[in-house]
Design a protein around this nucleic acid. Sequence first.
DNA 1: GGTAGATTTGAGACTGATTCCCAGTCGACT
DNA 2: AGTCGACTGGGAATCAGTCTCAAATCTACC
Lengths: 140, 140
Amino acid sequence: MPDTDARPTALRPTRQRRAITDALASAADFQSAQEIHDSLRRTGDKVGLATVYRTLQAMAESGDVDVRHNPAGEATYRRCSDSHHHHLVCRSCGRTVEITGSAVERWAHSVADEHGFTEVSHTVELVGLCAECARQEGSG
Amino acid sequence: MPDTDARPTALRPTRQRRAITDALASAADFQSAQEIHDSLRRTGDKVGLATVYRTLQAMAESGDVDVRHNPAGEATYRRCSDSHHHHLVCRSCGRTVEITGSAVERWAHSVADEHGFTEVSHTVELVGLCAECARQEGSG
DNA sequence: GGTAGATTTGAGACTGATTCCCAGTCGACT
DNA sequence: AGTCGACTGGGAATCAGTCTCAAATCTACC
């Protein structure tokens, strides 16, 4: 079984996929599948909700978009850069900053190594209070 | 209204609350409300699901437990141990190693600081292949 | 020990996100 | 242009989590 070619679903470029990609591209921040579906509606692109979910998942899997869960538990998506990165999220207003953490990468590898683990991937999420919100809470 | 004493609901110590606290204490890792509810059932503590959710939320609010969303989007809870630590999990056999990462803590704080964020908490999870499983996969 | 008032509980209906089903449609390739 | 399989979409199904409200329980006070 020399199936070396683990091609990860070349995702056919359909009208719907294009529409979703566009919606994603024109949004600055994380959006839920429902929001994307809505905005698609508004622009006149008729795309089924199921399709939006499916496509988003596929894109997340192939690394084209970032996924994260907002406080309400909804999955939200945003197109992302190829390079591996993490997020710093404001727990109050939801503002998100993309951060790269070579330090973390190194740490992860050394820890894994120390315990004999290989092929390590990691998830890091920082949640805090952005300057703006901190100021408001302080005065409120 | 000189209600300076903003005591946040002194949470009455009922049988149910105690049961949930115990379940949380005897669990090493994050558990969903449903799982806690189940384990409570198993040990014979009859507690309603709604109560589990309510209590867990209250505890999260008062800082007694950590909340996070697992990949499936479910909220999961873990009692807040004093010694903050992370996990290195084998993606094949599930073996878990507890790790402390002062390096990560420092990094998290410096990154947060850099972006004006305060009160930062972080979630770090390393997933890899333990030595044992790596050997088996290699030979299999 | 007993009573009143406030809090907590629990069963189940409800909500809203996400997935499943499956027949019809569309894109890649010849 | 024709074939075949991937893709789509409407709506039902699923599932976590929330809400409602009467009954149970607890605390404070006498």
